[in-house]
Amino acid sequence: MIDERREAQASLYVLGALPMEEVREFEQALRADLELQLLVAELRSAADAMVVAFPQITPPPALKQSILAAVAPAEPRAVPVIVQPDSFTRALQNWLPWALAACFAILCVLLLGLGHSFRQQATNFAEALEEKKQQYADLQRHNQDLQNQIDQTAATYSRQVGDLRQQAVQKAEEAQKAQKQTADLQRQMEQKGAEVLQFERQAGLLQRQLRQSVDEIQRLNDQLVNPVNQDRLAQLRMGVLTPSARGPAGATGASVWDVAEQKGLLAIEKLTPLPPTHDYQLWLLGDPKFAGPVSAGVFNVDAQGNVRLQFTTAVRVDAANRFAVSVERKGGAAAPSDNIVMISN
């Protein structure tokens, strides 16, 4: 199977248009490939046949005569006419042979001289021929050297072309990679831009919330500085409850008593749950109107030991300043037992 490149080379070769640098390579391939030889022969016949299609014009008739005349053989030489001697010259014929013999002798001497000269010239020519042969051999060697150089140069160029092609492929791959990276970066920039927009929206929202919080703080501050509210705070009694020696070590709590409203709030954590037969009871201490603590009700805690409740008292308490929790029988007691589990400072 002959590929397209070889077909193009064969066509150009037949037409004489293949560059010299490709001719050698093509002819090497041609010698080794019978199919290619057949193709070249067919293409050559086709090209030659093409001239039949040209406009056919007969050359001038005189041209044939001119050509034939130019290749005509030389005219035969005229036969020399022999003139018979007359009676007056017959006498001279007696000594003419002697004269001719003398002339022949002189001619022989001359020919011997010429022969020597010709031998000398032949020797000179032989030497010159030998010298030319030597020069021819030198030229052939030189030609071979040049051919080798051309082959080496062609091989070098071929390698360089191969390298350059490879580099071009690498550059193309790098360019493709760079384009891909650019596209990725572009996408990332677009994503970041979207995120920035989202952040800006969130920042706007937070700023609005911040402004609302500032307003709220301002409002609370205003309430705090309000004299009515200051009076309300002055009416509150607060205490932090801590475990007593009998109470559970991890329990904590706090209690507030609003003198003005006569209501209170209790919050305790990690107090031990009691059996159904007992209750915890809260007490308010420190009001001089009473001889002892005033009961604020009974309660119990959930499974985790926590409780949060509002409480009040059966009597008005105006000066309580401490709180205590005791364990009492179910329903509570009129006065606290000695089983105090938590007390405020």
Partner: peptide, 18 residues
């Protein structure tokens, strides 16, 4: 390409004649 195509076409057209 022109020379290649032309020569091959010519060859194919004249194959029976040459």
């Amino acid at each position: 390409a022109r020379i290649r195509r032309g020569m091959l076409k010519l060859r194919d057209s004249l194959k029976e004649l040459l």
